[in-house]
């Protein structure tokens, strides 16, 4: 009788041990990555590439699905957050998701997530090829001489490219006549037709037009210059205007996130594989071909970047009158 009891006890113990070991091992089943933007957008493509590579190392499937809609991707984010916080559901996000809060689609702060930032494409300022400005200095001087006379196009009010334009204005003292467009592509088209003289979008979005000579790049809105095939080096705007470093860079941050309550060991397992993938040649080649700068930030570093973006976007939108919810009620600090 006693022997049986010992055996049962042992069995229970072994099972529990196995169970514990099981908990340590991640992942044991397929992962779902819910991209909060539509298929084919930058966030979607980026998440598909990274998930595909991570799936190979994890040896499970990572199913990428799209759940766009709401404001700032709020429908997808709410959906992921409402599922178990076990690390098996990720949210494919980008920097613009930080606007969901002030737009009334997300009632939490952005620190409830842990981020894995793949990177983004840096912003570049270009002009219509026959515009009289040879470099950034000439453009800024002309804009200062007659404030509001030069038309500058960028995607909608409060978008990342508009924020870049605003930061350039603040840092250089120039004032442009900002013309909003529904997206980067129409803004670029407007620059080609001459409806606007200046356009700010990302390098990835502009590269074809720059290389074909339909747009002429003046400066990068990042501290580093950028080398482009067929074009050469595009200088940084920080050279002539060092004051810009207070406001810029405002970089795209594309990647994925898991709820912060996911167990530490799971987050560590994801981070480990994520870093391996970011360092892999496949990703490097992909980034180069697609004009992306890889980041690879995780943990505290990544969270800080998103909190910075959150406060910047939230307060800018509020000042522009484009926000529904006062950032103060969400306790978002001022930038």
């Amino acid at each position: 009788m006693k022997r049986y009891a010992v055996m049962v006890f042992l069995l229970v113990f072994v099972c529990a041990g196995l169970g514990l070991a099981q908990e340590k091992k991640f992942p044991v089943r397929d992962i779902t990555n819910v991209v909060v933007w539509a298929a084919g957008g930058g966030t979607d493509v980026c998440n598909r590439i990274v998930s595909g590579e991570m799936a190979k190392l994890f040896k499970v499937n990572i199913n990428v699905i799209n759940k766009p809609g709401g404001v700032g991707g709020s429908i997808g984010m709410n959906d992921v957050y409402s599922r178990p916080h076990d690390g098996y559901t990720w949210a494919g996000v980008s920097e613009s998701c930080v606007t969901a809060g002030v737009q009334g689609g997300w009632d939490k702060r952005m620190y409830v997530w842990d981020y894995f930032i793949v990177g983004g494409s840096p912003d570049v300022l270009s002009v219509t090829p026959n515009a009289p400005y040879k470099d950034l200095k000439e453009l800024i001087e002309a804009a200062k001489a007659k404030p509001g006379s030069i038309r500058a196009g960028a995607s909608a009010s409060g978008s990342i490219h508009h924020l870049n334009l605003l930061a350039l204005e603040k840092g250089s003292g120039a004032k442009f006549n900002y013309i909003p467009y529904p997206g980067s592509a129409p803004a670029q088209t407007a620059a080609m037709t001459g409806e606007v003289a200046v356009v700010v979008t990302s390098v990835a979005e502009q590269q074809q037009l720059i290389r074909a000579g339909k747009l002429r790049p003046l400066a990068m809105l990042t501290p580093q210059p950028f080398t482009m095939k067929d074009v050469g080096s595009i200088p940084s705007s920080f050279g002539p205007y060092p004051g810009l470093s207070t406001y810029l860079p405002i970089m795209q941050a594309i990647g994925f996130a898991v709820p912060a309550k996911v167990p530490e060991n799971v987050k560590e397992a994801i981070a480990e594989v994520f870093k391996k993938v970011i360092a892999s040649d496949t990703l490097k080649v992909w980034a180069e071909q697609n004009y992306y700068t890889l980041s690879g930030k995780t943990g505290k570093e990544a969270k800080e970047e998103f909190e910075k973006l959150e406060s910047l976007f939230a307060w800018t939108l509020w000042e522009l009158g484009a926000a529904e919810v006062n950032p103060e009620t969400l306790k978002i600090p001022k930038p």
């Binding site: 084919g40 979607d44 493509v45 074809q208 037009l209 290389r211 074909a212 697609n290």
Partner: peptide, 9 residues
């Protein structure tokens, strides 16, 4: 874009 073809000039 998903299939890595960027349309343009």
């Amino acid at each position: 874009m998903i299939h890595n073809v960027t349309p343009g000039p």
